[in-house]
Each structure stands twice: as structure tokens, then as C-alpha cells.
Design a binder for these strands. Sequence first.
DNA 1: TTCATTTATTGCCATATGGCAATAAATTTT
DNA 2: AAAATTTATTGCCATATGGCAATAAATGAA
Lengths: 191, 191
Amino acid sequence: MKSDALRAVYQHELLSDEDLKAICDAHHEITFSKGQHILETGTIADGYMILESGLIRSYVIDFNGKDITTDFFIQNGLVIEVSSLFQRIPSQENIEALTDCTCWKIDFQVFQQLFHSIEGFREWGRSWMSSNLFEFKQRSVSMITDSATERYHKLMETKPEVFQYSSLKHIASYLGVTNTSLSRIRKETMK
Amino acid sequence: MKSDALRAVYQHELLSDEDLKAICDAHHEITFSKGQHILETGTIADGYMILESGLIRSYVIDFNGKDITTDFFIQNGLVIEVSSLFQRIPSQENIEALTDCTCWKIDFQVFQQLFHSIEGFREWGRSWMSSNLFEFKQRSVSMITDSATERYHKLMETKPEVFQYSSLKHIASYLGVTNTSLSRIRKETMK
DNA sequence: TTCATTTATTGCCATATGGCAATAAATTTT
DNA sequence: AAAATTTATTGCCATATGGCAATAAATGAA
């Protein structure tokens, strides 16, 4: 149910019940079907969503035309392209539903209004951004210190859902290895 | 001079001259000498700084005791450990002056007061966080799609200052290669 | 159900980068 | 200035991962 999902996400000591209600009310349901594009390169994001069910990925196409998965979004995750949304610039990334999905969306102007009027919401938002940034920093470090095999195992631990619904090629590009290598890593770890 | 440096950083259409003055006034000068630690693992950051002159790096020590440079801060950059500062948790990273440095520091409580009272400041802050996040995402992608040599050249283009003042071992760990390999990359590119 | 397409696996060989150790060069300390 | 320490370079060889192509398996379409 709507407010259950959202209250699980919007956890912050400074958010009163009243605040939470206003925030929840600002979201509306939106669904996507498998393979559908949610955001495309060159478009300015007009809001963000909380993923109620399904699996979503973001990706970029590099100079060689290679598709690189930059992130996987799982249940209760924020589906958002931060740069585009907050700097009001065209997105460099694409976002795509890997399964049928149900989301709760909040539009940018509505978000803005709440952000600037509810202190606890600002604190929550800033805190969320911090965690997100931290994850990406960790990812860079992992690319340096961990072997492909270790990165594979870590992903299995942190986001097992991904392995149920994503094809391996998307997982491979996310991990920074080729299809081929991922296949060999999997063969090894089966032993 | 103080307000010159700060006004160059705090650029946002919603910030009035009055706002800027209040923000500038909130900063005080602080200096560090080469080799000095600015933030250590386990400590909670008590503010952030704008680097007026000098070079600073952040780093982590991985499970094998290896020192990995996570970022270089150059003139007019924000020297900040976002997670620690905004989530009020002990830092995972260390921050260290690589040269003598002069900075403008703003303490957390002072920042908070301004952040929650000046809308333009919030917009600026969120925007800054977005760019920062974007850089780290790009870095992850670069680790996947670019060779060590390409990463080396990109760093030379984006932060040439680093090569003037940092030792190569810090640059190597930042680029995700060994000392040895960086040395070979440099040899190659000299030709 | 069959056909077509996409995705995953495997073999063979190539290549980038790492590990270690010796030396050289630079920097810091005494 | 000399000694000690840290940093950078280079050689030799090891290893992880990539590239390509053939096949197999799975998925989606007709």
C-alpha cells in the first residue's frame, strides 16, 4: 500500500507525521512495462520515483557505442537522475525498466515546494544524497582494489534481486567486465 | 582576498548580494602545512572548507593496508567529507594536505543555520552535491571504459595542478594502477 | 510449434597490468 | 654535507581479463 512503501523510505527524525502525510500525498502511482524507457539521454528529468516493485537500471552509451550499466534500482530505491533533476540539465544517462514496475512518482515542482518548506525533508534529502554519493565512491574504490570475482560476489550480497531479473550482460557491464569474463567467473564460483 | 575567492565558488542565480555577504562572513581562514592531517578516519567532520591555495587529497586504507587516493582538491574546490558532515557519522576517509594550504572554513552549525534560512544557498548546495555525484559516476564509468593511459591523460587535462604537487604514488592509486604501471605509462607518453 | 533473435558459454590466443626486486633519483633528517 | 629515507624507474616474469568466433541455450515472435 502507498503510505507503507513511502514511509519506509522517508525515515528521518525531523519528519513529523504531518510532514510525512504531506510528502506521501505528493506521490502518485505510475507503472512501466518491461523494456520501457523511463528517461532518455537529452531529456530533463521531471521528477523522481520510489520503486515499489520491479527492477530498473540506468546506463550510458560510451564513445565506442558500448552500453554500460551505471546502476540498478531495487525495491524501495529512489529512481532518480540527480544531475538532470537538480541542475535542470539534459540527462547523460538513460533509465530503463528491466521488468514490469510499479512506482510512486513525485513531480519536480511539487518536490521543490515541499523541500523548501519542510526542514526535515531537506535534511532527509541531503542525507539521501550523501549516502548515494558514498556508494559511488565505494564503487570507484572497489573497481581499484577488488578483483572482478570479488565485485561479483559483493553485488550478489548487496543486491541479490538483480540476479533474478537482469540479464548477465547488464550485470557484466555494471561490474566492469566483459560478458565472456563474467561467464567464466560464474563457472568458477559454481565449483 | 576572502570574498573574491568565495564569490567565485558561491555562484547561483538565487543568491542575492546580501546572501553572499552573509555566507562569506560565515567563513574564517585556516591554514595547514604540508603533510598535515585535516580529517582522520573515525572523526566526525565539523565543517567544510574552500581551498584558496595548495593541494589536498582524500584517501582510504583498504583491507590490505593499501593507501588509495579517492580525490584531489584543487584551488576553489570544496574540501569536504560529505557523508560524515551531513549524516553526522565518523568519517571513513582521511584528508591530508599535500602542500601548505590556505582555506576558508565554515563550521557545521553556522552552515546549517544559513542552509535552512537561505533558499538560494540550499539550491546552490544541492546543485554542488549533484555535480560532485556526477563526477564520481563518471569516474566509475572511466574505470570501466578507459585504459589506464587514457585515465592518466584525462587527469592531466582536468587537474593539471595535481601533477605539480602530488607524488606519483598518490596519482597512481587514484588512477587505479600500481606505481610501476604508472611509471611505464609516463615513459610511453614521453615518446 | 517452429523459427528467429538474443543471450550465455567455451576455446584459443593476445594484451594490459601486476608482483617483486634491483637500482636510481629525489627528498628529508641529522 | 652526509646519511637515511622515501619515491620513481626498470627488468623479468606471472596473471587476470579481453577479443573473437563457434556453439549452445534461452527467449520472443510468427
